[in-house]
């Protein structure tokens, strides 16, 4: 069963700005990989619970204690743009 992928929608969800040529390139490759991966659907998993994690983990709480965090200046130095102690980004909405 060929797998139908709305690749432009997936790329938008993943915030990847790809050209039409790139989209069709990845669409073809994903179809081949998903065709192989779809083998999981042939396995009878009735009454099988999904495993999200290999060890049976429970919440790992830590004590609510104040401890030093990373130095703000050092962290901001790695940002493409910062201002007044904040990360700086372009506007969320286009201005009219």
């Amino acid at each position: 069963m060929p797998i139908d992928i709305d690749i432009a929608h997936v790329a938008r969800l993943a915030r990847l700005g790809l050209s039409d040529a790139e989209l069709s390139h990845y669409q073809a490759q994903l179809a081949v990989i998903l065709d192989h991966a779809a083998r999981v659907q042939e396995i009878d998993t009735e009454d099988v619970k999904p495993t999200a994690h290999p060890l049976s983990m429970v919440n790992a709480f830590r004590r609510d204690e104040v401890r030093p965090s990373l130095d703000r200046t050092e962290v901001l130095e790695q940002a493409p743009e910062h201002e007044d102690g904040y990360f700086r980004v372009p506007p969320h909405l286009e201005t009219q």
Partner: peptide, 14 residues
């Protein structure tokens, strides 16, 4: 169909 089923197969591997 994909992720959920893969997580169940993971249980079978274990």
């Amino acid at each position: 169909a994909f992720y959920g089923q893969a997580q169940k197969v993971r249980t079978l591997v274990i």
